Simulated scan of single mutants.
Amino acid sequence: MATSERTYSDAEVEERLKKELPHWYLEDGWIRRKFRTNSWKGTLMVINCVGHLAEAAWHHPDITASYAWVEVRLKNHAAKGITDKDFDLAKKIEEVVHWQPGKEGGALEGTPAEDMRFAYIKYDKPKA
């Protein structure tokens, strides 16, 4: 059963992105994020990660990809705009794609940063 969902104005979307998802932006009615990768392998890993999260959430983005990047676009087609579903899925995508276990401590070391054979995502540099 379809329910009415609140859609956000462009100004509200811009404000939430600035506060909650600074690497995402609003363009042509979609919230968007381009993930840079080191190779086709990394691109496929990002696509599969986003696909799993979208299917589990039952909210599906549009995806465009090339050899070393993936663009994810979200909007709620049924609501004809940006809703909380878009923000929530974007946050989960951001959290999982940019997870770096080696920086958390613990038993998981993460991929070797110095060996490009294992590199797959270009992590955002921390903001100063």
Score class of each variant (00 low, 15 high):
Lys41Gln: 15
Val46Thr: 04
Leu44His: 08
Lys75Ile: 02
Pro61Trp: 03
Thr37Val: 15
Met45Glu: 15
Glu71Asp: 07
Ile47His: 03
His59Ala: 14
Val70Ser: 09
Thr64Trp: 07
Ala65Trp: 01
Leu89Tyr: 05
Ala79Tyr: 01
Tyr67Phe: 13
Thr83Leu: 03
Thr83Lys: 01
Asp62Cys: 11
Ala68Tyr: 08
Asp84Phe: 08
Ile63Ala: 05
Ala90Met: 03
Val50Trp: 05
Asp88Gly: 10
Ala68Ile: 14
Phe87Gly: 06
Thr43Glu: 15
Thr64Gly: 09
Val50Arg: 01
Asp62Val: 10
Asn38Phe: 15
Trp40Met: 13
Val72Asp: 03
Glu71Cys: 06
Val72Ala: 05
Ile82Asp: 02
Trp40Lys: 11
Ala79Gly: 08
Thr64Ile: 07
Leu53Gln: 08
Asp86Cys: 06
Phe87Gln: 08
Trp58Val: 12
Ala90Val: 00
Lys75Thr: 15
Asn76Ile: 00
Ser39Ala: 14
Asn48Phe: 11
Lys85Thr: 09
Ala54Val: 02
Val70Lys: 07
Asn48Tyr: 07
Gly51Glu: 06
Lys80Cys: 00
His77Asn: 09
Pro61Thr: 03
Ala78Tyr: 05
Thr83Met: 03
Asp88Glu: 14
Ala57Trp: 02
Thr43His: 14
Ala56Trp: 09
His59Met: 13
Gly42Cys: 14
Trp69Leu: 05
Ala68Phe: 05
Val72Pro: 03
Glu55Ala: 14
Ala54Tyr: 01
Val50Asp: 14
His52Arg: 07
Ile47Met: 07
Lys92Thr: 11
Pro61Met: 06
His60Asp: 08
